[in-house]
Structures are given as structure tokens and as C-alpha cells.
Amino acid sequence: MIELRGVGYSYSGDALLSDISLTLAPGSFHFLTGPSGAGKTTLLKLCYLELKSTSGQVTLFGRPAQEIGRDGIARIRRRIGVVHQDCRFLDHLPVLDNIALPLTVAGHPPEAHREELGELLAWVGLEARARALPPELSGGERQRAALARAIVMSPDVILADEPTGNLDWEMSLRLLTLLTELNRLGKSVLIATHDLNLIRQAKTQVAARVLRIRNRHLVAAGADL
């Protein structure tokens, strides 16, 4: 579904990523780890075309990235659910409307999906917070709302950037469980995190491949993971 072949990314002449090759096949589960500033977020952004690679080939759902226009990118993003580190909500809209936003912009009236939205809210444990505004949510609630928004369109791929960064261990495990459940439904999952305990915990639940960014290159993680 998402394939990177020899991809590099440079900013102002400085190479941030070099010769990255990665394939996110249907039903796969990947962790992406590495120290802060290693380029995890950059790699995720290359996967949903928020950034354009400066070398190599990115292919999304069989289409080379350079052949995809702006409308095409919008359509492809409806098939990729992204959970950002900072969540990125529209603060003037209630949680429910934020979660339904991908449906709204795709021209699907949220009223027609009321039941599914209710189930989704229950699944992430936010039924009681549906009418709250994003600034009123706790860190954990924001992460779960972001996950709900990422999967509301039933995407083929879920990309999560430090989804447990602001959560305590118990909440992190809960979010991890939600992601592994989605993976069992056939979704491809890529989680960027520097939380090695979370990765170890995940490997007890799902067959996850762990990748590490080291010196701008993507390598398989060591045996400790």
C-alpha cells in the first residue's frame, strides 16, 4: 500500500534521511524507533505526502507520488489515518465534530453515520466527552480522540506519531490495545515511538517488525527489541 524505495529527504542542503526503503503491506505492523530528532516524524510525513522526498521513489496505493496531484493527495489521505503527536484538532468544534471531520470533508454527512460514530466514541471511551471542546480534554483523551478521527474513514493504513507521548503507562497500554485490534482487522499500522517498553509490550500481542533510524538510514532494530 505504501512503498518507499531508496528515499532521501534533505532540508536546506542537510540530509535528514538517506536511502530509506520500506513497504507497508496490508495487515502489517511496524514500529519505528530512534532518538529524538532522528527523523521519525519526517519519515511518517513522507508516507502521507506532507513532505515530498528529495530522492528515491514513494508509491502510494500503486501510484508514484510525483504523479499524484493535490486532489489526489486529498483522496489518498482519506485512506491513511494519521495520529499526530500534537493531535491537531479544530479547537472551535466539539470532539464529536472533530472525529467526524474526515467524513465531513469527504462529503459524507456525519448524521448518516451517527450509529458508527457512537460506537467509535464508545470504543475509545469518549462517549461522555462528545460535546466537549478539544482544549477541555486531558492528554489521554486527546490521543484517543485523535485515534478515533484517524480511523473514522476506515482507512487502510494508520500512521501514529508518538501516540503515547503524553500518556501514563496504563493509558499507553489502552491505546496500544486499540491499535492492535485495528491491525487484527487488517489495517496496516506504523507507530513512531521512542518508548521501548511500549514496543516490548506490543510484541507480546502482535507480530510487529521494529525498525530504527540510525544515522539517517533505516535499519532493523537489534535483538533487544
Binding site: 493535490r70 479544530l90 471531520l101 474526515p102
Partner: peptide, 16 residues
């Protein structure tokens, strides 16, 4: 700008 960024990321077309 932030609203526009969020809308693009969740799949909104420019015309929308």
C-alpha cells in the same frame, strides 16, 4: 493556517 493544515491532513480538497 492551522485549521487549513488540519483540513488538508484529513483529506479536504482545496476547493472545499
Amino acid at each position: 493556517a492551522q485549521v487549513i493544515g488540519v483540513l488538508r491532513l484529513v483529506g479536504a480538497r482545496d476547493t472545499y
